[in-house]
Nucleic acid binder design. Structure first.
Length: 414
RNA sequence: GCCGGGAUGGGGUAGCCUGGUUAUCCUGUGGGAUUGUGGAUCCCAGCACCCGCGUUCAAAUCGCGGUCUCGGCCCCA
């Protein structure tokens, strides 16, 4: 037997119904917010991702040479592709450009709970200018989506890279020099961060201030405890979110996301119940376009881990939707088959989900089957009924049945 | 890349330590009892020891290697 490749999953009918339900929910929510869907290729030039994340990522992605000798990889995320698409074809669209996407991504990693080699991301990007309004709109969409899924136990934490960068730049540590320090701070590896800061010649008092700053967490009011342009900016973002009615956001200046292209606001959503892989959404404002050789454009975006969101809902025991077939048509004998197929076809044309016996089973077996596939009604097509141009409509949950005229059946089921 | 648990019909499992006849049970699947009325009951059928190598008269069982899986570490764009 051939097994499926490591870290991949097959999805059965029940699971696909649930997945489509939540996909559609997320799409609808994004459209409600004025975002429009885009789609990009599943494979890209490997360079797109090494430019964004450094040459080291090649070790963590599905990268290979194609038959033409091109360096190609399966996309590990979608932001880079969307920015590439923007630079290739969308630069003349009216701005801000509000886009969203849904699709699978691939990473060559060791699978564990909530981590697969093929996984799905839903995300959005606003390409335009950095304003608190833009950032708030992006966080607002992420929050609206998570809220609408019905997830109860989650946290939205907002930080700002600029606050730490401001503190560091006062000591003369700027740009790429600040990156390793930010990375250690993001992981809360304080000893390592302090070692690096000592090497950079930062005074102990300032060092303490920096470390303490990353520990500032709590309600929006914690922002009142210090000053600076970045602080004023994030305050504006939070005020807009409050105006939009999102009160469950908190400030966490320990959210740093130590990557060079993040420029300001950063945020994360996590579901504490998930364990080691609990982050279900991450985003922030960034500047990637010029890395890819385009104009300098500021953007803000996020990506939701679709699989993890579903896992989180599952662990909360959320009621998940199930689709039911409306009608199962049962011909009483071979002579009735033609009438039965005519009926099932009419129902389908009328937009009523309908199925029919394909196994030439008897009535008893067919009713059993109809119940097993959870159809709402069975429709029995037989000679007795046909005499009055009718069929028997049986409600499979109550067991009640009645004679219904063929001309009324569609209206009755609608 | 590292550490640990695991893999037996479609799903869930017993057997493995202590090798030995036809591999256990539940559920589901197909058929029948019932050729026009389901969810019950009974009967019948079909379906499995993850793969390879080794040890042995004999391997689901012991050893080695691999694959997949679950949990954790590293990483997490």
């Amino acid at each position: 037997m051939i097994q499926r490749p490591r870290g991949t999953r097959d999805f059965g009918p029940e699971e696909m119904e649930i997945r489509r339900f939540f996909e559609d929910m997320m799409r609808q929510e994004a459209v409600l917010h004025g975002f429009r869907e885009v789609s990009t290729p599943i494979f890209e030039h490997t360079e797109l991702f090494t430019l964004k994340s450094g040459p080291g990522v090649v070790e963590e992605i599905y990268a290979f040479q194609d038959k033409g000798g091109r360096e190609i990889c399966l996309r590990p995320e979608l932001t880079a592709s969307v920015v590439r698409f923007f630079l290739n074809d969308l630069t003349t669209f009216p701005r801000p450009l509000k886009m969203f996407y849904f699709g699978q991504c691939f990473r060559y990693e060791r699978p564990q709970a909530g981590r697969y080699r093929e996984f799905f991301q839903f995300g959005s990007e606003i390409i335009g200018n950095p304003t608190p309004e833009t950032d708030a709109e992006v966080i607002g969409l992420a929050a609206a989506i998570v809220e609408r899924t019905g997830l109860r136990d989650y946290r939205i934490r907002i930080g700002h890279i600029g606050i730490l960068r401001e503190l560091l730049s006062r000591t003369g540590v700027e740009g790429d020099e600040a990156l390793p320090i930010l990375q250690k701070l993001d992981k809360k590896m304080y000893t390592e961060a302090e070692d690096l800061m000592t090497q950079a010649g930062i005074a102990p008092e300032v060092m303490t201030e920096i470390v303490e700053t990353t520990k500032i967490t709590g309600p929006i009011s914690v922002l009142d405890s210090f000053e600076g342009p970045a602080r004023d900016y994030i305050k504006e973002v939070c005020d807009i979110l409050l105006a939009m009615g999102f009160s469950n956001v908190s400030v966490d200046l320990g959210v740093v996301r130590g990557l060079a292209y993040y420029t300001g606001m950063v945020f994360e959503v996590d579901a504490p119940k998930l364990g080691a892989e609990k982050q279900i959404c991450g985003g922030g404002s960034y500047s990637l376009a010029e890395l890819f050789g385009g104009e300098k454009v500021f953007s803000t975006g996020f990506a939701i881990g679709f699989d993890r969101t579903l896992l989180a809902l599952q662990t909360e025991g959320a009621a998940l939707p199930q689709e039911r077939l409306t009608a199962f048509v049962v011909p009483v004998n071979d002579m009735m088959r033609g009438h039965a197929f005519k009926l099932v076809s009419e129902l389908r044309r009328a937009g009523i989900s309908a199925d029919i016996d394909l196994m030439r089973r008897n009535v008893g077996k067919n009713l059993k089957f109809a119940a097993a596939v959870k159809a709402k009604y069975a429709i029995i097509v037989g000679e007795k009924e046909l005499e009055s141009a009718s069929v028997t409509l049986r409600d499979l949950s109550s067991g009640e049945q009645s004679l219904v005229s063929m001309v009324d059946i569609v209206a009755k089921l609608k």
